[in-house]
Amino acid sequence: MKSFGLDRRKLLGRALALGALGSLSGCDFDHPNHPDLADRFLRAMSDWNDEVQAALFDPRTLAPTFKPSQITRPPRFNAFYDISQAPQVDAATWRLALTGRIGDKRPWRIGQLRAMPRESQITRLICVEGWRVVGQWSGVPLHHFLRKVNADLRARYVSIHCADGYFSSIDMASALHPQTILALDFLGAPLTAPFGAPLRLRIPTKLGFKNPKSIVALGVTNTYPGGYWENQGYNWFSGS
């Protein structure tokens, strides 16, 4: 259950103005498993906004692309921890685990991914906070990969788990978008640890936090997988 971390005292004052939201029970805002009335209302509206965004999503609409001169330098690091804490993944022993509704679940080595056809893009990453950067990523289109491993393309979600414990999930329509890639390179060189080595999702039709880094597992499922930030209250679809 999503929670929105609302402070009871602060909210109570506002509830006077909001009127309809006045009946706040003694539930604990700190526990996402015990959402109060305001949490339930916001959750319902966020779910509704997911549906609106899915309807608004056009698989043929491409995110804008940029010139090499427009690339943001130096690139901006962002995570829920400091850059020094970025996970160091040994590419030699790294494996991509596959779970859920996938026909061929044999784990992938980095060399196998590098042997796949690539797509390169200079696109803009917009953070949920409001800032944006332009970067160049190249990697395996996710729709190629999903077909290659015989995934159920009619399933609802693609879930991603990362070496640092981060996780997220996207809708299948966005997963099959031509600009959605499993990125191997950033700015013309293999990804470095802070920017998601050895493999990250790059999806320019969604906000930055939907681009998980240092992926260790990819799943296809019909059960809502949530996400690190999504479970704390960020809108799940978060399309651009």
């Binding site: 609302l6 209302f41 916001l42 509206m45 966020s46 949920v128 409001g130 800032w131 704390q232 209250g233």
Partner: peptide, 28 residues
């Protein structure tokens, strides 16, 4: 969360407690 002018709004004037809560209220 990402001011583009040299000031921010004091926390007591805002609604939502944190960015996730604020976006949820805004889009509701």
């Amino acid at each position: 969360a990402s001011p583009f002018l040299p000031f921010t709004f004091p926390q007591w004037m805002t609604i939502g407690q944190w960015l996730g809560g604020a976006i949820a209220w805004h889009l509701a």
